[in-house]
């Protein structure tokens, strides 16, 4: 499906899900749309419905109340869809590993393809992550 991936890489539509974050990563993602970083010049835009999404951005350490909703949401996204985990929370749970309300294994809830670590990751790091994704899609 590499021809499909190449078409996809020209203009990625992104849907943002926050699953129990502290909202810092979410604000840095929104910062990417503002005039200083301006992600729209790469053809990347944020969409309002998951059915239009090519890439899902997940932020936050997924807590147990949100996990079933996240699974359902992932099932609604038309495949193929790529999942990017933004921040240290989806990568390793950050400092919340001792809590009673956290899922033990995030990959079982939603399979993540690309991690962008950082607390929060700088906008430049996020742009580099996206560029890596585009490179992989282009083969």
């Amino acid at each position: 499906m590499s021809w499909y991936n190449k078409r996809l890489a020209k203009s990625i539509w992104v849907f943002h899900i926050s699953a129990s974050p502290c909202n810092n990563c979410d604000i840095e993602i929104l910062d990417l749309l503002t005039p200083k970083y301006d992600l729209e010049r790469f053809g990347i835009k944020l969409v309002g419905s998951i059915r239009h999404a090519d890439v899902l951005l997940v932020s936050g350490v997924i807590n147990q109340k949100v996990a079933p909703k996240l699974k359902y949401l992932y099932s609604q996204a038309p495949k193929p869809v790529f999942v990017v985990g933004v921040g240290t929370c989806p990568a390793s749970g950050c400092c919340f590993n001792d809590s009673y309300n956290i899922t033990a294994n995030r990959e079982e809830v939603i399979p993540i393809d690309l991690y962008i670590p950082g607390c929060p990751p700088k906008p430049e790091a996020m742009i580099e992550g996206v560029a890596k994704l585009v490179e992989v899609l282009n083969g």
């Binding site: 849907f15 943002h16 899900i17 926050s18 699953a19 979410d26 993602i29 929104l30 944020l46 969409v47 309002g48 419905s49 998951i50 949100v66 909703k69 996240l70 359902y72 949401l73 609604q76």
Partner: peptide, 13 residues
């Protein structure tokens, strides 16, 4: 209803 393209649209919640 979503309040913006950047807010969580968690359905049935």
């Amino acid at each position: 209803i979503p309040v913006g393209p950047y807010h969580p649209l968690l359905e049935e919640a």
